[in-house]
Nucleic acid binder design. Sequence first.
DNA 1: GAGAAGATTATCT
DNA 2: GATAATCTTCTCC
Length: 194
Amino acid sequence: MEREFFDRDAEVVAPLLLGCVLSHGEVSVRLTEVEAYAGGRDAASHAFRGRTARNAVMFGPPGHTYVYFTYGMHFCVNLVCGPAGTPSAVLLRAGSVLSGSAVASARRPRSSVRDLARGPARLCQALGIDRSLDGADVCADGPLRVSLGDPVDPSLVRCGPRTGISSATDTLWRFWIEGEPSVSPYRRHAPRSR
DNA sequence: GAGAAGATTATCT
DNA sequence: GATAATCTTCTCC
């Protein structure tokens, strides 16, 4: 994938990523669900309150990963968008495993093939992504790569409110491919305690 | 230095 | 549907 592809606003790049293929080692996943996060102008973004040690990579050049750890047990992966200095990124929420399903299944023994990458944390686990890949360049010849996949029928692309966040729920920056069984089932808000 | 919340998932009722 | 698991990071004091 060319770096110029990512050098635009996250909400523009996000729908274009649907159908693209993310590869790490033997495992490849076709992306079916993503969300855009736009840094300083997006209250739901990790970069909304400025640069920190965790989100620093989002302020860097596009085409790199932003991997973070959450809930004490899960990783999620983003692709940094926009020119350096604009902290926007696209969260990869779900995909379907194209190849390397044996390796992915070994990492997630209790999942059916369909569920291997059905959800942001599951996708990372299936691909073997952890914080050692934070800041990895997916446009270079590294372990993690993004490439174009089969074109997606534009009439099947849907958008809606983002999942699992408690602010900026009125921005329709979640994109998915209608009819894909690998799209994550979690569409609810997350009012945890109280 | 302490406390709270979190871009989630698996499991139980 | 509800909740536990589990720990990093950020925000104050």
